[in-house]
């Protein structure tokens, strides 16, 4: 059992607060992705769990054991680094077996485990090579194999795919998911790539300015963003926003149209809708088309609704040109509302 509990962890670098009071529980064998833009604190949090960085306050527990005072080697973790960190003076075999040798395992066991993980990562033919003779993708495989060979309770990954080219990244992503699902380890994976996060995660923790703003399943994060930040960060392109004015009885005025919304006493809310949740209809928001970008199956149409930028993803057989006027109807059950003061979602 390797449940990870992060309790009230905060980190300051001088006067800069990198992490504010983080609380997060990651279940045994869960695949958790920390997602956020650069500088949001996701790598710092991972490095605190690994023991490469010391938290200013708070506690980290793994498998019911408090580990935040222990050196990295005693935490039962293994880590995969962004630049792979494959030791250049050792062969692939010795790289994968490095941790096992440090545990003073007998030779035949080391060989067996290195062989097995190498086969798992499809690099058994590279065992005698040095890192200088490997491609980026091969190095990545060595780095993952080296972590897996440790048979750790927890595997930590810091943007492991971001140095690979797009095609290889896709291939490695699928492979990584398969290998980790079989390995029974708890995984924490840091990335800034939301597609990667969506495809890999059991749960995503979206981080922003040193805080976790939402921790939920990929679909939940996508469909029901807890904060305006998440709505504007997830999705490509992200959600559209328009100011809404309360006209009483759960009716809200958005760009001159009345739409049903939450029963709230607030005077103003932000209306939000995903670009793919808009349809052309006779009733709806009036939008003037500024730009049309064909994406193959769809058109990405950038419009202007009462001076606010508004995007719609529409079917590509429609003939739409810049300058056209469209009437866009939002799908009622996909509309989300945010409080402009607290930025939190309002039901």
């Amino acid at each position: 059992m390797a449940e990870i509990q992060i309790k009230n962890v905060a980190k300051r670098f001088g006067s800069y607060q990198a992490l504010h009071d983080i609380n997060l529980t990651i279940a045994d064998q869960e695949f958790m992705v920390l997602l956020g833009a650069s500088g949001c604190g996701k790598s710092t949090l991972l490095r605190i769990i690994a023991g490469l960085e010391t938290q200013s306050t708070g506690e980290v527990w793994i498998g019911g054991r408090r580990i935040d005072h222990l050196p990295p080697k005693d935490r039962g973790i293994a880590m995969v680094f962004q630049n792979y960190a494959v030791f250049p003076h050792l062969t692939v075999f010795e790289n994968i077996g490095f941790g096992l040798r440090m545990q003073k395992l007998p030779n035949d066991q080391v060989t067996r485990r290195v062989q097995r993980t190498a086969e798992l990562m499809h690099i058994e033919q590279l065992l005698k090579r040095y890192s200088g003779e490997l491609s980026g993708g091969q190095r990545q495989r060595v780095a993952v194999a080296r972590a897996l060979a440790m048979e750790p309770d927890v595997i930590l990954m810091d943007e492991p795919l971001s140095n690979l080219d797009a095609l290889l990244r896709l291939e490695m992503r699928a492979e990584l998911k398969g290998v980790l699902a079989e390995s029974n380890t708890t995984a924490i994976y840091v990335t800034h790539d939301q597609v990667e996060a969506m495809s890999l995660a059991d749960r995503i923790s979206v981080m922003h300015q040193g805080r976790i703003v939402q921790a939920a399943s990929p679909v939940e994060v996508y469909r029901n963003p807890a904060e305006r930040f998440v709505a504007g960060f997830i999705g490509n392109p992200p959600m559209n926003f328009l100011p809404a004015v309360n006209s009483g009885n759960g009716q809200w005025t958005v760009a001159g149209r009345s739409l049903p919304g939450p029963q709230s006493a607030a005077g103003n809310l932000d209306f939000a809708i995903r670009p793919e949740d808009l349809r052309i209809a006779s009733e709806g928001l009036t939008a003037r088309v500024r730009l049309v970008e064909p994406l193959g199956a769809h058109l990405l149409v950038t419009c202007d609704v009462e001076g606010t930028m508004f995007r719609a993803i529409l079917d590509s057989d429609m003939a739409i040109r810049a300058g056209d006027h469209l009437t866009l109807a939002p799908m009622q059950d996909r509309i989300r509302w945010f409080d402009p003061e607290t930025t939190r979602s309002v039901a």
């Binding site: 690994a50 023991g51 490469l52 050196p71 990295p72 080697k73 973790i77 293994a78 880590m79 680094f81 962004q82 630049n83 960190a85 030791f87 250049p88 003076h89 490095f98 941790g99 440090m102 545990q103 780095a143 080296r146 440790m150 930590l156």
Partner: peptide, 25 residues
């Protein structure tokens, strides 16, 4: 790269053994 040392720490090295086994060679 400092990551080489950090990798060694996560693989069971102390500061000293990471230095002698990875940095020094």
């Amino acid at each position: 790269p400092v990551e080489l040392e950090e990798a060694a720490w996560t693989l069971g090295c102390t500061r000293l053994t990471a230095f002698t086994k990875v940095v020094l060679p």
